[in-house]
Design a protein around this nucleic acid. Sequence first.
DNA 1: TTACTAAATGTCACCGGTTAGATTTTGACC
DNA 2: GGTCAAAATCTAACCGGTGACATTTAGTAA
Lengths: 365, 365
Amino acid sequence: MHFSFENSCEKIFIPIFAHRNDRIMHRKSEPTIHDIARELKISASTVSRALQNNPRISLKTKEKIKMIADAMGYRPNTLASNLRNRRSNTIGIVVPLINRYFFSAVISGVEDVAFKAGYTVVISQSNDLANKEIAIVQSMFANRVDGLIISIAMQPTNYEHLKIFRKKNIPLVFFDRSVAEIETDKIVVDDYMGGFRVTQHLIEQGYKRIGHMAGPQNLQTYIDRKKGYCDALLQNGILYDETLVVINSLTAEDGVTAAKHLMSLPTPPDAIFCGNDTTALTSMIYLRDLGIKIPEDIGIVGFSNEPFSRVVSPSISTIALPGFLMGQKAAGLILSQIENKTKTFQTLVLPTELIIRESSQKHKH
Amino acid sequence: MHFSFENSCEKIFIPIFAHRNDRIMHRKSEPTIHDIARELKISASTVSRALQNNPRISLKTKEKIKMIADAMGYRPNTLASNLRNRRSNTIGIVVPLINRYFFSAVISGVEDVAFKAGYTVVISQSNDLANKEIAIVQSMFANRVDGLIISIAMQPTNYEHLKIFRKKNIPLVFFDRSVAEIETDKIVVDDYMGGFRVTQHLIEQGYKRIGHMAGPQNLQTYIDRKKGYCDALLQNGILYDETLVVINSLTAEDGVTAAKHLMSLPTPPDAIFCGNDTTALTSMIYLRDLGIKIPEDIGIVGFSNEPFSRVVSPSISTIALPGFLMGQKAAGLILSQIENKTKTFQTLVLPTELIIRESSQKHKH
DNA sequence: TTACTAAATGTCACCGGTTAGATTTTGACC
DNA sequence: GGTCAAAATCTAACCGGTGACATTTAGTAA
């Protein structure tokens, strides 16, 4: 005859606790489905199925098992489960720096979609160093992430650590900064239009000699921003002057150095389109300390819309990027790859928005 | 007789690639140590040992194995290894928000020490939500992190998800925001002295009626900051006036609301010690837009030294926290717990630094 | 050549879940 | 009671590495 659970709690609970103490004394390890099985004198597979709500297991048994599991403080070991299933229900995301507003917005967007779909997100930062990126990516691979979302480091490398994902057919999505020779889903912002609009805006404000602080030209984003800048000049009949373009890594210090350099030219610029908000800020402070008035003497525009751009004075005109949306889309793309729904890879280009603030408004309305 | 590797590359390489293709056709999975073993007609344990540089394996065999492993594109499966070893070589870190400068500095500090010690760091953010924190922590537990470093969410809960770490003797370190009733290593900044110095400074600058925007009083940090504020008033013979203290969640909006409230008082304050830089900023902007002059009419001091505090105008006086150092120390504590070197738990209190900027300098030097 | 030991390698069970397929149980129906 | 299919449960192999212990091999001394 079958053991009836409802009217014999004692019979069950007493042995459990005896057993637990015993176990803790000797092995001091986590209870497993096998411990639960032994407790109930059933097989581990039944326990496993019950905990997964498998319809093959009777409701009565399921309840019994869940109750005991709870009482024993059972916690599934995802390592074992992942090993067996050859998947981890985890999505890796690698960004150059987590404390950049744009990147953390992307991360939040990814988390938003991924959590709802039942995935865990593991975050890592490369600090823009190729070696750290390689180590991180290999570790994520070794941990069998189901997919990887990445914005590559500034420091260039051969990208073998990423090519392997394609070779092994592991879902991979690039965002913002991608590797041209790797064919997969990519999601970028319209850097070209961003650069174009910034330049167009400066021209409309009456600036005549517009300089540009560009980022490393091994990254498409910076190439595109510069291209937008060039084309806007061209369309407005302004001659492109190479001496007005500085290429650097867009760090805070680079902003100062570049501003210093540009101002030392025989005919310095009367406006600077900075590759990001950080350089816009530091060069602006440098110029201000020199007694140069912004936007009257020199106009400044940044890129990325870091939160500080809005609150400094003068506030910095910039290009807003849809970070959160980008993260959501990236997560959507990786999920569709994971679920084998991807037919062909696509490159999404998200629109940007020009935000006009004080630093570039010569003509106030 | 033994197979000589050096003078028979062909014999080895041809079968390898034949085998690989074969494998890819049929199983399309990662090569394992078993595949390598089969290839070389040796046992898997020898391969495992060779790849770990175990001295029990001869140099010759090791070289042979590593060569083949490379040729086959072998990547160790950490899941399997972690399962068997019952440890993951991973340290989890949970912060309320990754894009707060302080928290990302802590993360970098943790990474700095952890990477050097051979650990991987997985980062997660709770968004200050109790439920998300619980989910994250449980997932980290299920993934068998070797230790957890956490700064708890503002939203209070019963902390069962953390108590379990102590119960199961899994290394746990709190930083910045900790749970009083859980006994483990903690590392905090000297919030009391921070609050005290800020208030003392404002008094020295000649402010008479100093208000305080305090954070949730379920978190020790905010209790201590407020206590420092109270004690500084007391020591200077200023009567503590409860109406000048506002308690909120210190969000950007809270800053405005609280400033509005304080200014609506019959006798409004002439200085505000804000619980963080965010509220300092937003309340400052609110006051500025009202035509109130800072620091002349009202002095403002924040807490945390967010990067923007330095660059806004007026620049915001604040308390600098040693985030990176804190991360390094936290990692040190968790490593010593992991390696069983911890004899007794300790609570480290790190010093803070008062940074005087424009927003509170009534008397310029 | 034999005996013996150190070095090298192999065997096998295990970590904790999962699942295909086998086996047992249940219960309806004749 | 007997038959049989559906429901419930069990068995055993597997995921990919690891390490205690067993076995084989090589090398030295007698």
